Simulated assay, not measured.
Amino acid sequence: MTHASEQLINREWWVERWLELLDKYRFKKRLERARNYARQGNVLSIEFKEGKVLAKVQGTEPEPYELSIWLDTFTDEDWQYVIETMSQRAIFAAKLLAGEMPGNIEEVFTASGLSLFPFKLDEVHSRCSCPDKANPCKHIGAVYYLLADRFGDDPFVLFQLRGRTKDQITSALRQLRGMAEDNTEGETQPTPASPVSSPLDLNRFWQYEAQLDSSLVVIAPPPSSETILDVLGPISLPSDAGTPANPTPVMEYLQSIYQQASQSAILAALNRDAS
């Protein structure tokens, strides 16, 4: 198993994409030297300035080499379209404002003919002050590997390399979401009943009749096939003789009730009759 393949385990999907890109590089020996540089602490510093990554890597010379890495940035018009599209998808806006990367974020970019991630290593531009004419050299490669960790800690670094910082994106999203809410509030709405004249109806407490945003409703299988009955384990039933009764029939009955309740919930969420 290669180092890059090991790194894919338990990593965020956008980090996997970056490491897969690097793993396709045909000069494997150079990649191995780059990994050693990264592991041994030869990368002295990494900072992000505007849309570039600036780093210092200690090589064989007394003075560290200085290098830069950058991607092609998107135009203001491209970013305006992308952010507007994000704001219209409630789940996108919610995740990004929470500092998370939506799993299908690429859909927003591909809809306008863009790609957040480079398709090949040649699309990642770099320059190093070392005498090695090959690009990427082992110093640049070492920074590539450490960038994967930075992407994992802060996914907004990817947006910054494309021309927009985290603050710029979240600020624009909040503004657009706020404008949408103001427009909704400006529409004629029924006057809510006074809590004094209309006491709380406990029978209707869990009912919600307003239309939900479709992007907020996701019906998906649970991450585990275990049910609450599996977690609780076999139950003990007392008997008149003082020895536990066979719990199998009871467990089978409870399993059937659990399955029926689950199916009814899904049908209700889909607005279909359970018959």
Score class of each variant (00 low, 15 high):
residue 65 Y to A: 02
residue 96 L to Q: 04
residue 21 L to Y: 05
residue 49 K to F: 11
residue 104 N to Y: 10
residue 61 E to C: 01
residue 37 Y to K: 06
residue 88 Q to L: 09
residue 46 I to D: 07
residue 83 I to K: 00
residue 57 V to P: 04
residue 37 Y to I: 03
residue 67 L to N: 04
residue 21 L to M: 11
residue 46 I to R: 09
residue 38 A to N: 03
residue 42 N to R: 13
residue 88 Q to Y: 03
residue 43 V to A: 04
residue 104 N to H: 12
residue 73 T to R: 12
residue 31 L to Q: 11
residue 52 K to P: 02
residue 31 L to D: 03
residue 90 A to L: 12
residue 96 L to I: 15
residue 38 A to V: 03
residue 39 R to Y: 03
residue 103 G to Q: 11
residue 109 F to N: 04
residue 20 E to N: 13
residue 74 F to G: 00
residue 102 P to G: 06
residue 91 I to D: 15
residue 31 L to F: 07
residue 48 F to I: 15
residue 55 A to G: 08
residue 106 E to G: 04
residue 56 K to D: 10
residue 36 N to T: 13
residue 74 F to V: 01
residue 35 R to G: 01
residue 82 V to T: 14
residue 45 S to L: 06
residue 34 A to H: 09
residue 34 A to E: 03
residue 81 Y to I: 15
residue 86 M to N: 05
residue 110 T to M: 04
residue 83 I to Q: 05
residue 62 P to I: 07
residue 107 E to H: 10
residue 80 Q to N: 15
residue 77 E to R: 15
residue 89 R to H: 14
residue 63 E to F: 01
residue 61 E to V: 09
residue 105 I to K: 00
residue 71 L to M: 14
residue 47 E to W: 06
residue 105 I to H: 01
residue 74 F to E: 00
residue 48 F to R: 09
residue 84 E to W: 04
residue 76 D to Q: 12
residue 103 G to A: 10
residue 29 K to C: 00
residue 27 F to Q: 11
residue 93 A to Y: 02
residue 40 Q to H: 06
residue 106 E to L: 09
residue 42 N to T: 00
residue 31 L to W: 11
residue 79 W to T: 06
residue 103 G to M: 09
residue 42 N to S: 12
residue 58 Q to H: 06
residue 67 L to Y: 04
residue 108 V to S: 14
residue 19 L to H: 09
residue 61 E to M: 07
residue 99 G to T: 06
residue 32 E to K: 13
residue 18 W to I: 10
residue 36 N to Q: 13
residue 40 Q to I: 00
residue 62 P to S: 09
residue 89 R to N: 15
residue 33 R to V: 10
residue 23 D to C: 07
residue 19 L to W: 08
residue 33 R to A: 13
residue 77 E to C: 06
residue 76 D to N: 12
residue 35 R to I: 15
residue 18 W to P: 10
residue 98 A to S: 14
residue 82 V to K: 07
residue 69 I to A: 10
residue 59 G to M: 06
residue 48 F to E: 08
residue 53 V to L: 06
residue 67 L to W: 02
residue 88 Q to I: 01
residue 58 Q to C: 02
residue 54 L to R: 11
residue 79 W to H: 07
residue 60 T to D: 13
residue 15 V to E: 06
residue 56 K to Q: 15
residue 110 T to F: 04
residue 45 S to N: 11
residue 75 T to P: 04
residue 32 E to G: 02
residue 110 T to L: 06
residue 44 L to D: 02
residue 35 R to P: 04
residue 28 K to Q: 10
residue 110 T to V: 13
residue 41 G to D: 02
residue 48 F to L: 13
residue 18 W to V: 08
residue 95 K to M: 13
residue 28 K to G: 01
residue 93 A to Q: 11
residue 47 E to L: 09
residue 55 A to V: 07
residue 42 N to K: 13
residue 27 F to D: 15
residue 110 T to G: 00
residue 15 V to K: 00
residue 61 E to G: 07
residue 15 V to Y: 01
residue 22 L to R: 05
residue 53 V to W: 05
residue 23 D to M: 10
residue 97 L to C: 05
residue 99 G to L: 05
residue 81 Y to H: 12
residue 93 A to N: 07
residue 64 P to N: 01
residue 52 K to H: 12
residue 29 K to F: 03
residue 93 A to K: 11
residue 96 L to R: 01
residue 18 W to K: 07
residue 90 A to I: 10
residue 103 G to L: 12
residue 67 L to T: 09
residue 15 V to T: 11
residue 57 V to A: 04
residue 48 F to Y: 14
residue 100 E to L: 14
residue 31 L to N: 02
residue 109 F to Y: 09
residue 61 E to Q: 14
residue 53 V to A: 08
